[in-house]
């Protein structure tokens, strides 16, 4: 991929366009009275968020977003809306509407102030050539070569060599080249306990959902008192 494409205009323009689309769809979700149309716009905003993930070099998260949100959650919500006939009178706003506008505006203002006034440490401020090289994805083969998990000096033998123009630009505009295998490694190494716990949570919610949906139509009233 050439650098002019990554660094400049096109990605930025695509980001703002997608953001506008996503925000517009989100506004439709919370203002439309017809819930089914709101669900369709929700699916649209999920797709917009997935595109933002792709633009942020997070391919794996973007694909998961499309599979889980667009493919499963949207469909689940759409089916629920179709099965609950009560939604025909639409979704009315409650009395606390102006309070809601005020609170949301305050939260947004707080987030914006913090985001713009904090001095973030950015990838582009890295100076160590090895760190830059690591972030740009040149570390995978080197790691195994060194054996102890330590990255060998990529500029060994020629320590005066600065990181290449390409590496510097990738550090500012790109991140890890092979993100999916690295995420897989993280999931089964550093984060294996949360990973297993998530499985437990999903099974629990599955059983809970089934228990809630099963109903007790044919059961006698006083069955064990519990």
């Amino acid at each position: 991929m050439n650098d002019a494409f990554t660094a400049s205009g096109i990605v930025s323009a695509a980001f703002w366009l997608t953001s506008l689309l996503t925000i517009a769809a989100a506004i439709m979700v919370v203002t439309l009275h017809d819930i089914f149309k709101a669900a369709v716009f929700l699916a649209l905003s999920f797709v917009g968020v997935a595109v933002i993930f792709f633009l942020l070099n997070a391919e794996f998260v973007g694909v998961v977003q499309i599979l889980v949100y667009v493919g499963a959650v949207s469909i689940l919500i759409a089916f629920s809306i179709m099965m609950i006939s009560d939604v025909s009178h639409g979704s009315q706003p409650n009395r606390g509407r102006y309070v809601a506008v005020t609170v949301s505006a305050l939260v947004l203002a707080a987030i914006a102030v913090v985001a713009y006034n904090t001095n973030w440490t950015l990838n582009s401020s890295l100076e160590d050539p090895n760190a830059i090289a690591g972030l740009t994805g040149q570390f995978l083969e080197e790691e195994y070569a060194s054996g102890d998990g330590r990255i060998v000096d990529l500029y060994a033998g020629d320590t005066t060599t600065a990181p290449s123009e390409w590496a510097l630009q990738r550090a500012q505009t790109g991140v890890l080249a092979d993100s999916t295998p690295t995420i897989g490694g993280l999931l089964v190494r550093e984060f294996v306990l949360p990973f297993e716990t998530i499985g437990l949570v999903i099974v629990a919610s599955l059983i809970g959902g089934l228990a809630l949906m099963r109903g007790r139509r044919n059961e006698p009233e006083a069955r064990g008192g519990g």
């Binding site: 979700v29 639409g90 409650n94 949301s104 987030i111 713009y116």
Partner: peptide
């Protein structure tokens, strides 16, 4: 980073408004 955080904050605020202002549980 600031731009992305701003977009994220806007979507969060919209969702917060929806949670506070709607009556329908699916909404």
């Amino acid at each position: 980073l600031e731009h992305v955080l701003l977009v994220s904050g806007i979507i969060f605020a919209i969702g917060l408004y929806g949670v506070l202002s709607r009556r329908n549980t699916i909404s």
